[in-house]
Amino acid sequence: MKKYIIISALVMAIISIMSGCKKNDFPVDEDGLLITTRTDCYVSNFELLGPDFQTVRSKAPVIDTTACTISQEVLYGTDLRSVWPQFSLAQDCKLDPKVTGKTDFSDLANPRQYTVISGNRQIRKTYKVIITVQSR
Protein backbone atom coordinates (compact mmCIF):
# COMPACT_ATOMS: atom_id res chain seq x y z
CA MET A 1 0.00 0.00 0.00
CA LYS A 2 2.77 2.37 1.02
CA LYS A 3 4.54 1.64 -2.27
CA TYR A 4 1.53 2.77 -4.32
CA ILE A 5 1.24 6.03 -2.38
CA ILE A 6 4.91 6.84 -3.00
CA ILE A 7 4.63 6.07 -6.73
CA SER A 8 1.45 8.23 -7.05
CA ALA A 9 3.15 11.12 -5.29
CA LEU A 10 6.19 10.88 -7.59
CA VAL A 11 4.02 10.84 -10.74
CA MET A 12 2.07 13.90 -9.51
CA ALA A 13 5.30 15.75 -8.74
CA ILE A 14 6.73 15.06 -12.21
CA ILE A 15 3.50 16.21 -13.90
CA SER A 16 3.54 19.40 -11.84
CA ILE A 17 7.15 20.13 -12.74
CA MET A 18 6.53 19.52 -16.45
CA SER A 19 3.42 21.73 -16.45
CA GLY A 20 5.31 24.51 -14.72
CA CYS A 21 8.10 24.49 -17.29
CA LYS A 22 5.82 24.34 -20.31
CA LYS A 23 6.70 27.00 -22.84
CA ASN A 24 4.10 29.76 -23.46
CA ASP A 25 2.88 29.29 -27.03
CA PHE A 26 0.62 32.36 -27.10
CA PRO A 27 2.42 35.53 -28.21
CA VAL A 28 1.40 38.92 -26.88
CA ASP A 29 2.09 42.37 -28.29
CA GLU A 30 3.69 45.41 -26.64
CA ASP A 31 0.41 46.15 -24.82
CA GLY A 32 0.24 42.66 -23.38
CA LEU A 33 -2.67 41.80 -25.67
CA LEU A 34 -2.94 38.38 -27.28
CA ILE A 35 -1.82 38.20 -30.91
CA THR A 36 -4.24 35.90 -32.71
CA THR A 37 -4.63 34.61 -36.24
CA ARG A 38 -7.61 36.84 -37.05
CA THR A 39 -7.31 39.17 -40.02
CA ASP A 40 -10.55 41.13 -39.54
CA CYS A 41 -9.76 44.83 -39.37
CA TYR A 42 -12.63 47.30 -39.24
CA VAL A 43 -14.71 49.64 -37.07
CA SER A 44 -18.16 48.23 -36.40
CA ASN A 45 -19.67 51.12 -34.41
CA PHE A 46 -18.86 54.62 -33.23
CA GLU A 47 -20.18 56.63 -30.30
CA LEU A 48 -19.47 60.16 -29.12
CA LEU A 49 -20.26 61.25 -25.56
CA GLY A 50 -20.47 64.75 -24.12
CA PRO A 51 -19.08 65.94 -20.77
CA ASP A 52 -22.18 64.52 -19.06
CA PHE A 53 -21.48 61.11 -20.65
CA GLN A 54 -24.64 61.34 -22.72
CA THR A 55 -24.53 60.80 -26.45
CA VAL A 56 -24.12 63.84 -28.68
CA ARG A 57 -24.95 61.90 -31.84
CA SER A 58 -28.02 63.10 -33.70
CA LYS A 59 -28.18 59.95 -35.80
CA ALA A 60 -26.37 56.65 -36.26
CA PRO A 61 -22.83 56.85 -37.67
CA VAL A 62 -22.11 56.04 -41.30
CA ILE A 63 -19.07 53.77 -41.34
CA ASP A 64 -17.48 53.09 -44.71
CA THR A 65 -15.09 50.19 -44.21
CA THR A 66 -13.82 50.48 -47.79
CA ALA A 67 -13.05 54.18 -47.77
CA CYS A 68 -12.16 53.91 -44.06
CA THR A 69 -14.30 56.83 -42.97
CA ILE A 70 -16.67 57.37 -40.08
CA SER A 71 -19.20 60.11 -40.74
CA GLN A 72 -21.04 61.34 -37.70
CA GLU A 73 -23.51 64.17 -37.30
CA VAL A 74 -23.77 65.61 -33.78
CA LEU A 75 -26.50 67.62 -32.07
CA TYR A 76 -26.76 71.35 -32.58
CA GLY A 77 -24.76 73.18 -29.93
CA THR A 78 -22.34 70.33 -29.22
CA ASP A 79 -19.02 71.69 -28.01
CA LEU A 80 -16.53 69.44 -29.76
CA ARG A 81 -13.52 70.47 -27.70
CA SER A 82 -14.26 67.97 -25.03
CA VAL A 83 -16.03 64.85 -26.21
CA TRP A 84 -15.34 61.20 -25.57
CA PRO A 85 -15.13 58.92 -28.64
CA GLN A 86 -15.87 55.21 -28.35
CA PHE A 87 -15.03 52.72 -31.11
CA SER A 88 -16.35 49.19 -31.47
CA LEU A 89 -13.81 47.09 -33.37
CA ALA A 90 -13.72 43.68 -35.03
CA GLN A 91 -12.68 40.83 -32.72
CA ASP A 92 -9.11 40.99 -31.40
CA CYS A 93 -8.40 44.37 -33.06
CA LYS A 94 -6.91 47.32 -31.27
CA LEU A 95 -6.82 51.06 -31.88
CA ASP A 96 -3.95 53.46 -32.33
CA PRO A 97 -3.82 56.04 -30.82
CA LYS A 98 -5.60 54.75 -27.77
CA VAL A 99 -8.60 56.69 -26.50
CA THR A 100 -7.61 57.74 -23.00
CA GLY A 101 -10.27 60.34 -22.28
CA LYS A 102 -11.93 63.44 -23.59
CA THR A 103 -10.69 64.46 -27.01
CA ASP A 104 -10.83 67.64 -29.07
CA PHE A 105 -12.74 67.12 -32.34
CA SER A 106 -13.35 70.82 -32.95
CA ASP A 107 -10.97 71.12 -35.95
CA LEU A 108 -13.54 70.04 -38.49
CA ALA A 109 -11.26 70.85 -41.44
CA ASN A 110 -8.70 68.29 -40.25
CA PRO A 111 -10.58 65.19 -39.17
CA ARG A 112 -8.96 63.05 -36.52
CA GLN A 113 -7.53 59.74 -37.66
CA TYR A 114 -7.45 56.44 -35.82
CA THR A 115 -5.73 53.27 -37.02
CA VAL A 116 -7.34 49.88 -36.50
CA ILE A 117 -4.86 47.00 -36.15
CA SER A 118 -6.02 43.44 -36.82
CA GLY A 119 -5.81 40.54 -34.38
CA ASN A 120 -2.70 39.14 -36.07
CA ARG A 121 -1.19 42.66 -35.91
CA GLN A 122 -0.34 42.46 -39.65
CA ILE A 123 -3.14 44.63 -41.10
CA ARG A 124 -3.57 48.31 -40.32
CA LYS A 125 -6.41 50.51 -41.56
CA THR A 126 -6.58 54.20 -40.83
CA TYR A 127 -10.05 55.66 -40.38
CA LYS A 128 -10.97 59.33 -40.66
CA VAL A 129 -13.61 60.57 -38.24
CA ILE A 130 -15.61 63.19 -40.09
CA ILE A 131 -17.83 65.19 -37.76
CA THR A 132 -20.62 67.50 -38.84
CA VAL A 133 -22.80 69.58 -36.56
CA GLN A 134 -26.54 69.92 -37.05
CA SER A 135 -27.37 73.33 -38.43
CA ARG A 136 -30.41 75.51 -37.85
Binding site: G77, Q134, S135, R136
Partner: peptide, 19 residues
Amino acid sequence: FPTVTFKHALVAPAAPKEY
Protein backbone atom coordinates in the same frame (compact mmCIF):
# COMPACT_ATOMS: atom_id res chain seq x y z
CA PHE B 1 -36.57 75.47 -34.20
CA PRO B 2 -37.86 73.09 -36.83
CA THR B 3 -34.58 71.33 -37.55
CA VAL B 4 -32.73 71.26 -34.24
CA THR B 5 -33.52 70.79 -30.54
CA PHE B 6 -32.88 73.95 -28.55
CA LYS B 7 -35.70 74.26 -25.97
CA HIS B 8 -34.57 75.29 -22.46
CA ALA B 9 -31.16 76.89 -22.50
CA LEU B 10 -28.73 78.72 -20.25
CA VAL B 11 -26.42 80.98 -22.20
CA ALA B 12 -23.71 83.36 -20.98
CA PRO B 13 -24.08 86.98 -22.12
CA ALA B 14 -20.74 86.67 -23.92
CA ALA B 15 -21.62 83.42 -25.69
CA PRO B 16 -21.63 83.31 -29.51
CA LYS B 17 -24.60 85.21 -30.99
CA GLU B 18 -25.76 81.98 -32.60
CA TYR B 19 -26.73 80.57 -29.21
